[in-house]
Computed example of a mutant assay.
Amino acid sequence: MMLKEPVLKILGKQYAPSTMVELKFGRYDLMFKTDDQGRPILLFMGTKAADGNIKGERYSRRLKIDDSGHVIKDHWEHKGKATP
């Protein structure tokens, strides 16, 4: 399952550094972890269970930045099921 443009638009924003952010998007619950710059780097997308875990899919961001701060590579990789 590839991420679509509306979800990528949400993930393209800056958030609080080094936190877990929870959002509701359509019928999906999103939970993502941010890096020290506030960029989302780990995404869980699916349905939130009663225990707070997301049952669905897990994605990881491949982000490569050069010494001057320009983004060289930025894409999301599907890593499989989240909370089987």
Score class of each variant (00 low, 15 high):
49 A>D: 11
18 S>G: 01
1 M>D: 02
43 L>D: 00
33 K>T: 03
57 E>M: 04
12 G>T: 03
14 Q>N: 09
78 H>G: 08
65 I>S: 09
63 L>D: 08
57 E>F: 13
1 M>R: 09
66 D>K: 08
70 H>Q: 10
19 T>Y: 01
71 V>S: 10
39 R>D: 03
79 K>F: 09
75 H>L: 09
4 K>Y: 03
51 D>I: 15
57 E>C: 06
74 D>Y: 06
21 V>T: 15
69 G>M: 04
68 S>Y: 13
18 S>M: 08
3 L>C: 14
10 I>D: 01
13 K>T: 02
75 H>N: 13
21 V>K: 12
79 K>S: 13
1 M>A: 07
44 F>L: 10
78 H>R: 11
28 Y>I: 02
59 Y>I: 03
52 G>H: 12
4 K>P: 00
76 W>V: 12
17 P>T: 03
43 L>R: 00
64 K>T: 04
57 E>D: 14
34 T>D: 01
53 N>E: 08
61 R>H: 05
55 K>Q: 15
80 G>N: 15
62 R>K: 07
51 D>R: 13
56 G>T: 09
60 S>H: 02
59 Y>S: 01
51 D>S: 13
48 K>E: 08
79 K>Y: 00
66 D>L: 09
53 N>W: 05
23 L>Y: 03
39 R>Y: 03
32 F>R: 00
43 L>V: 00
67 D>V: 10
65 I>Y: 06
40 P>S: 00
4 K>I: 13
83 T>F: 02
25 F>P: 02
77 E>Q: 11
60 S>Q: 05
49 A>K: 14
9 K>L: 10
18 S>D: 05
74 D>K: 08
59 Y>L: 05
57 E>Y: 07
2 M>I: 07
20 M>R: 07
10 I>V: 13
56 G>W: 05
13 K>L: 05
46 G>K: 13
33 K>E: 14
57 E>W: 08
8 L>D: 09
44 F>H: 10
81 K>M: 10
57 E>I: 01
2 M>W: 07
58 R>M: 05
38 G>P: 05
20 M>K: 08
15 Y>S: 13
28 Y>Q: 04
65 I>H: 07
53 N>D: 02
72 I>Y: 04
73 K>F: 12
84 P>Y: 06
35 D>Q: 08
6 P>V: 02
4 K>D: 09
18 S>V: 08
18 S>P: 01
73 K>R: 11
67 D>H: 03
69 G>Y: 04
62 R>N: 08
74 D>Q: 10
48 K>R: 14
76 W>G: 03
65 I>R: 12
77 E>S: 11
61 R>T: 00
16 A>S: 12
19 T>C: 01
66 D>E: 15
72 I>G: 13
13 K>H: 02
15 Y>W: 07
80 G>V: 15
20 M>D: 14
11 L>V: 04
66 D>C: 13
31 M>K: 10
79 K>L: 15
